[in-house]
């Protein structure tokens, strides 16, 4: 007996089903803010039939644990890293490929145009559906000097996420990929164990990495989304009207999250600039060329991956 155990409470005339949503970051994160607004609107539009209760700060476990809990129906929704869903359907890797998107605008178009609908529904046999892809900004390289070409990275140890694609990518970009837990990065840079990291401006400013690596170069090599997932029984148990409301809201708040992200981005940049960070615009072409083999390896795994990659690239023009 798995799935579909959301708490339902008597609420005046209507019954409210509470959808528990696990979130791994704090209440200040743009994704949290968008989800909180979305929750309010869901409650309103469904006349109190559904509400989302967000548990931030990994209160319900790591992303991987929370993802399993969604599959078993212990909780109903979670925001998880793209790489976790990749384990179930390899095609998701395409969404997180280096230079898959040319710009924020391009990414927004991909996430809201409907070309991902089929992919998002593909996992229902694994007891979950993907509702939306939320942006997590674009990751850039920061270290003790501006990085404008792959040659600038020669011998530079840059912290990357612990994923084979990330490691291959950074090595292809000319540096030495060094996987490491995020909590260790600040001291590691300070003490010269590594020379820098790669992340978006918000995380860069939040973790005060500008104190130890004051040159932020806009390589924009990764724009990996996070995915909003829901237990499939819960989704299919909703009336068609409510499913449509959910679908529309997901699209609306995917866009809204881009807006909130931009607002916070500006204040992160201001903070870092005040602290003495130099932001450098970079010609990304040599980096784009360098990572082609990494892209090829993922895309050539299946025809569907190739087709997905092509349709994402088509929207770039």
């Amino acid at each position: 007996g798995c799935g579909g155990s959301a708490k339902t409470t008597e609420n005046g005339a209507a019954k409210t089903t509470t959808l528990k949503l696990a979130f791994n970051q704090s209440e200040n994160h743009p994704q949290y803010k968008a989800l909180a607004e979305m929750s309010d609107e869901l409650y309103e539009l469904t006349d109190g039939a559904y509400e989302i209760e967000i548990s931030p700060n990994e209160l319900l476990g790591s992303q991987k644990d929370a993802f399993e809990l969604v599959q078993s129906g212990t909780i109903q929704m979670a925001m998880v890293a793209n790489s976790i869903v990749e384990n179930v359907n390899g095609d998701f890797a395409v969404l997180g490929l280096p230079y898959a998107y040319d710009s924020t605008e391009h990414q927004k178009k991909v996430f809201t145009s409907g070309i991902l609908d089929e992919l998002f529904a593909s996992t229902s046999a694994n007891k979950f559906n993907v509702l939306a892809a939320f942006t997590a900004g674009s990751r850039c390289i920061y270290t003790d000097k501006p990085v404008e070409t792959p040659e600038d990275l020669a011998g530079y140890k840059i912290r990357v996420m612990e994923a084979p694609t990330s490691i291959a990518m950074l090595n292809a970009m000319g540096g030495v990929a060094t996987p490491m837990a995020q909590s260790e990065v600040y001291t590691a840079i300070q003490q010269g164990v590594i020379n820098g990291g790669e992340n978006n401006e918000i995380t860069y400013a939040d973790l005060k990495h500008y104190e130890v690596a004051p040159y932020f170069s806009y390589t924009r090599h990764l724009m990996i989304p996070d995915l909003l997932v829901i237990n499939s029984d819960i989704l299919s148990g909703m009336s068609e009207e409510h499913q449509q409301i959910m679908k529309d809201l997901c699209k609306k708040y995917t866009e809204r999250e881009f807006e909130i992200w931009d607002e916070q981005l500006q204040s992160a940049i201001d903070t870092a600039t005040e602290a003495g960070t130099t932001f450098t615009e970079v010609d990304i072409t040599p980096f784009q060329d360098a990572v082609q083999p990494v892209i090829k390896e993922v895309v050539e795994k299946s025809e569907s991956a190739q087709a997905l990659y092509d349709s994402i690239r088509t929207l770039a023009e």
Binding site: G1, C2, S5, K7, G61, S62, D65, E68, L69, S72, G73, T74
Partner: peptide, 18 residues
Amino acid sequence: VILPFENAMTTASQKVFS
């Protein structure tokens, strides 16, 4: 009290492991 039996047990064992 809050979860069905099977969900409770798999979650509990998941927590021990992680």
